[in-house]
Every structure is written in structure tokens, then in C-alpha cells.
Design a protein around this nucleic acid. Structure first.
Lengths: 107, 107
DNA sequence: CGTCTATTTGCAAGTTTAGCCAAATATGCA
DNA sequence: TGCATATTTGGCTAAACTTGCAAATAGACG
């Protein structure tokens, strides 16, 4: 794999890596339902330190998956690209199939 | 987020994390085109140590994204779940949008 | 201007991941 | 059985990621 090709896959991987964390997935899922949320609300929902949540949001923003907007004293985040929600369907498919296969192996 | 919910997102994240690496993305992409490949071929294409490629394949297999089959002395890998290919489209969308936004910021 | 609130950032510790080399396994075949 | 080939696994190091606490920022508001 040459440098150019490698760079292409690295760019792609950066986006996917931004989704590859339970808390960040939760946030994305939440924003899919609620349109937008401030850091304090998400912190409350996630149940971690606000600094931790803030960093997760920065990771998602850096990847271009969410965008933020200041509203007075707080900052609201919302999904920037809806298609990431498609990930969930496929992931669910994989999980179901894994579960099914594990069942069959037990017989 | 309670324990059950957390477990749900952790399971999802494990799948996505398995995709979140340039080499593994390359492999998935390759298997999308070529149906199946042995470790030696993939090693050749990737250009890393065979042990490294083997581990990447193990990661993908563990997640349920690929499956393997021994053929004599070599082991062939193939995609187990096609829908992961949908990831690429969305990732491309995000990358394009990021590029576009960066252009606009330069004006 | 000073203060309060919301958020981000610096730092340190703990955990995970990636990569290579060497050694162990597993098959095929003479 | 013994050798050759393909693949995986153990061990180790360097780099990356995660997290919370404390400190720094940025607006809002009296």
C-alpha cells in the first residue's frame, strides 16, 4: 500500500475512530433524537466528569460529526452529518448475527 | 447512563472499533472487491509484517466482520457482513463536507 | 469591573493498541 | 517421520487513548 492510499485509509479511519467509543456513540445517538444538547445536559446523561464529556465532544467535532453553537453561557452540540446513524443499523446486524452464531455453536 | 445501557453501547463500540484502523479498513475494502484472500496475499498488499496482518484479521474476525476458512496450508478470509461497506459512503460524505467547509473558511 | 456559570485545557496515571521479531502451531507432502 | 510453507501467538516497546482533578477561559450580568 503506497503513501497516497495509506493516507486515504487513514483519513477514513479517523472518522470511524471518532465513533469508536461507547460514550461518543451514546452522544451521537442522543443527538439523533434530541436535535441538540448542551454540554451540561450530555454530562448529566452520560454520568462522567464534564471535562471528559467535553473532550469526547471535541473528538466528534474534530472529525466533523457534530458541530457546536454558543447560546449565551452554554454551548450546544448537534449532529452535522446524519448518515452516521446508518452505522447503528449495520452494527446491530452484526451483533444479532454474532448472537445467532453463538447460539448455534451451543447446540 | 446505567450499566445495561452502557453495555449496549460498549458492544456497539467494539464493532466500530474493529473497523477504526487504516489497515483494517483497507482489508475490508479489499475483501469487498475480491470476495476472499489468504493472509499471505493481504500481507503482500498491506506491506506490513504477516504477524501484524494476522492480528488485524483476528480483530476483524473477533468482531464478526470477517470469517475465515482453511484451504490446505493457507487460510482465506472473507466478509461476513456486507453492510459494513455502507460505512465507506458515509465516511466519504463526512470527508467531503469537511473539505468543503475548510475551503469556505479560507475565503 | 468583579463575579458566577458553562466549558475547555493542562497534567498525570492507568489502560489499550500497534508493530516487529522470534518461537510455536498446523498442514501438506515426500 | 521429517521438512517446508502458512499462520498464529508470546513478549516487548513505543505510541495513543481515557479519565478525573485542578486551573484557565469565555460570556453573561449586576
Amino acid at each position: 500500500m503506497n503513501a497516497k492510499k495509506r493516507a486515504k485509509y487513514e483519513a477514513r479511519a479517523r472518522i470511524i475512530k471518532a465513533m469508536a467509543h461507547p460514550t461518543r456513540l451514546f452522544i451521537v445517538d442522543q443527538l439523533a433524537h434530541d436535535e441538540q444538547r448542551c454540554v451540561c445536559e450530555l454530562t448529566e446523561m452520560v454520568g462522567a466528569d464534564m471535562s471528559t464529556v467535553s473532550r469526547h465532544l471535541a473528538t466528534l467535532k474534530e472529525a466533523g460529526i457534530v458541530e457546536d453553537e454558543r447560546r449565551g453561557t452554554q454551548i450546544h452540540y448537534r449532529l452535522r452529518v446524519k448518515c452516521v446513524l446508518n452505522f447503528f443499523d449495520c452494527v446491530e446486524t452484526v451483533l444479532e448475527r454474532n448472537a445467532k452464531e453463538r447460539m448455534e455453536l451451543l447446540r
